[in-house]
Design a protein around this nucleic acid. Structure first.
Lengths: 231, 231
DNA sequence: TACATAAATTGATATAAAACAATTTTTCCG
DNA sequence: CGGAAAAATTGTTTTATATCAATTTATGTA
């Protein structure tokens, strides 16, 4: 999806703003704008760290980021965050701490907004609150699918799931340029980096996909779907 | 925890009501009461089924229930539900469908409340909405810990986690009567029933716990904690 | 453009856990 | 109380995946 994003100096004019804000009035938008920090991150940089305080709501306006739990010597990537989407950790309503980390996969830009402004708007605008709860619910549902994939499918099924996620939800095209590393692919599918590489090679050898460097094309989505569904 | 629960014929008088309702006015409580169905379930009965519509918010007032995802030939138990707690699936705000099933582990009773009443109260009572979002957030955090346990720990660590969950959060005592089946223990810790039984046996042989029938006592919580923490 | 470093890949071995089958114990119902 | 069915347990084999090490390829910087 070649979507030329351009940024404005304020939220009202910005056509990068996340669709969650569609229910906000111009005044409410100006409240957000008044507390907004616009920041750039280079690929590899940490946006926030698990365990640290979470005073900001993060809106990714360009590039690609990942949110991941730092577990027992390895990471589990919960999701990739593409523009324009936001990161709102559950710690905001619990104890103001981050329960996962976020970092830039590609160079990206983000707007950071004071969470208290956000919570105030949730309290005062019922449509906004409902939209927010809906999105939290969608995230839960996505996580359910993810945990079932991780715990009940074998490696081929898990890689198939991740390839569809990347093609349909992140890059939104086929073929696509795989901008995440092999390690990140492994961290998304809950396996070692070597295993992930081996499965990709097998899929290539079986003609399910092509992979040259980072250029990947799914050639046989039907077969890949079958692999996804049988685990 | 020997907590003698008794039921009243209405929500206002009921001292079984879930603490999430503490922010509701008597009038709001009466709205809930006006749409309440009180139902009994025998052990093993389905409370609701994954994939079906979800018109009710379920408040478990006695007994024990489980919520679980029916995956690829096996179940993954997300949580046990003890009194007084409620079950509010994410499908309520997405498409009115259940994304997991619930069933009674022990004989239990539940009050079913029209979700539209619930959503109306969320729209109209900002304190109630905030409390609700906080609890959804706590569930997310719990699920994060669960998925890390399931994907990054070996079986001993996972059983240790589940034993602490049962002792600290469900039965709230040590020793306790293990009222869930071996299969359920396995479904909570993402392993086969035979593996779960073997690990319990090993912990018994190592003096970490005693287990006679369903009477279980954790003898060495420090060592069990270490097993949990190292995976 | 060359070189150093990082990432990707490949090969071989070890370990963790599932699967399968059989036996024993417990529970529940008539 | 007895018997059938279900649950729990045990033993053995198979399968899935990680781990470890070495090699090759790609990237980035000087």
């Amino acid at each position: 999806m070649v979507n030329k994003l351009h940024h404005s100096s304020n939220c009202a004019d910005c056509n990068c703003k996340a669709s969650i804000f569609k229910n906000l009035s111009p005044f409410e938008i100006s409240l957000i704008n008044s507390s907004r920090f616009k920041v750039s991150y280079k690929a590899g940089e940490i946006i926030f760290k698990q365990g640290t305080p979470s005073p900001y709501f993060v809106c990714v306006t360009s590039g690609l980021a990942k949110i991941y739990i730092e577990g027992y010597g390895k990471n589990l990537i919960l999701a990739l965050i593409k523009p324009v989407d936001y990161i709102f950790g559950p710690g905001i309503y619990v104890d103001n701490r981050h329960y996962y980390s976020a970092s830039a996969v590609e160079d990206c830009q983000a707007c950071l907004v004071d969470v208290n402004i956000f919570k105030k708007l949730i309290r005062e605008n019922a449509d906004f609150a409902e939209e927010f709860i809906k999105r939290v619910s969608l995230q839960s549902i996505f996580n359910f699918d993810q945990v079932i994939s991780l715990t009940q499918k074998q490696m081929h099924g898990r890689i198939a799931d991740v390839l569809f996620y990347l093609s349909d939800k992140i890059y939104c095209q086929n073929p696509f340029e795989l901008t995440i590393s092999r390690q990140d692919l492994a961290d998304l599918s809950g396996m070692s980096k070597e295993s992930a590489i081996r499965i990709l090679k097998e899929f290539k050898e079986e003609g399910i996909l092509t992979l040259a460097g980072n250029a990947l094309e799914i050639l046989n989505p039907k077969q890949l779907r079958q692999i996804s569904e049988t685990g």
